[in-house]
Design a protein around this nucleic acid. Sequence first.
RNA 1: GUGGCCGUAGCUCAUCUGGUAGAGCACCGGAUUGUGACUCCGGAGGUGGCGGGUUCAAGACCCGUCGGCCACCCCA
Length: 431
Amino acid sequence: MSNIRAIRGMNDILPGDTPYWQHLERSVSGVLASYGYAEIRLPVVEQTELFKRSIGEVTDIVEKEMYTFDDRNGESLTLRPEGTAGCVRAAIQQGLLGVPQRLWYAGPMFRYERPQKGRQRQFHQIGAEAFGVATPDMDAELILLTARLWARLGIADSVELQLNSIGNLAARQAYRAALVTYLEQHEQALDEDSQRRLHSNPLRILDSKNPDTQALLDSAPDLADYLDDESRDDFVRLRELLDAAGVSYVINPRLVRGLDYYNKTVFEWVTDRLGAQGTVCAGGRYDGLVQQLGGKSTPGVGFAMGMERLVLLLQETGALSAVDANLDAYVVSVGSDAQRAALAQVEQLRSGMPGLNMLQHTGGGSFKSQLKKADKSAARVALIWGEDEVAAGTVTLKPLRESDGERQAQQTVPVEQLQAVLTAVLASDTQ
RNA sequence: GUGGCCGUAGCUCAUCUGGUAGAGCACCGGAUUGUGACUCCGGAGGUGGCGGGUUCAAGACCCGUCGGCCACCCCA
């Protein structure tokens, strides 16, 4: 086909879906604000180096999923594959890190992956980052915040919190060595992907979906046994706080997360209702990242949630019933005199009742066809200007919907009474 | 990057073993001269993703390509 089409994996979000998006975005920003988080708006493009240094050179994201290109001056740029790196960069550059800082951001992210359910090349995240607090009460706050969000969205029953601690760098290195030593003894039993990861990114083998590999891991060394004291204590404290707040979770000792900058707490909210891409929100602590990117050593914790997946979940669970057009009135006018009168008087009505949603019929057409459009529009009332009305200085209000099994009769009133009568008609109709 | 399934009107799909495309919904018009929904009648709309091959003949078979879906990988 020679027609220009959207880039693979970069989807249009259509009018039928945007009500879900708007509802979701409003809910998230509302909850974030209620916990004192401030929005920060960040560029979509950053220096390629930023992502290499934060996410990790040997991760799949950096190795093969980034949209990278040379700017006209030869500098290598990349469409952001995730939000934390840019947020940290901005916090350092703009000097936001002197005091504890709670930030959130929203927007598109880009990863060159094969699209499937719940995954596309341009996708949208809302993320939150808290800087400057090393204690696990900060981790708890972020988790509580997300839990509140699920409740507000009506999907709390569809998601489960998985928690783990991956310790500090030294602990992870010690564990990594032990794990590799163990797995090398069983290298032949590993699936192909895990064999490849054995030396590049062995921790990732822990969450392999291969059942044989999982069986092998049952007798592998436990990450929990290698944790440093501080990580262990903080993890205990975090669990206490969550227990006290009544947030339930499951410990998943094989949850490791894919990005290199995490340490200590990692968590994921997962659902079993979206097929293979069940992670709907994920995050963790990254105490070394700020320093790693050139800032003064500052602890951080954060999470990001996938908007597409949450919208799917809202639709899947029916947590949000399809929102209809919510149109109050459809304006019908036949003939050029009537249209002139209608246009002017509807403008006055809009000034008097700014909250009204009114659709003005455009493009002409017969009386009948205009009323058909009025019906299709799902508007509650048709406002009719015809020859008779214009001549008499009146307008006809015709209720289009039934309420309580009855429909009000239409009435023709002087235009001066339009606002008052329309208000009464809409009010008496229970919607 | 790998694998499976799929690609016919705006949408959902049909066309039995190859013989030059159809339904439902949606859309437009009509059935009262100014009144929608229900009903009836009529109408418009498809180079069957694209390219090539086999055949007298292909939407149906074969190859390629592009695209979609789902899964692997990876991740939000």
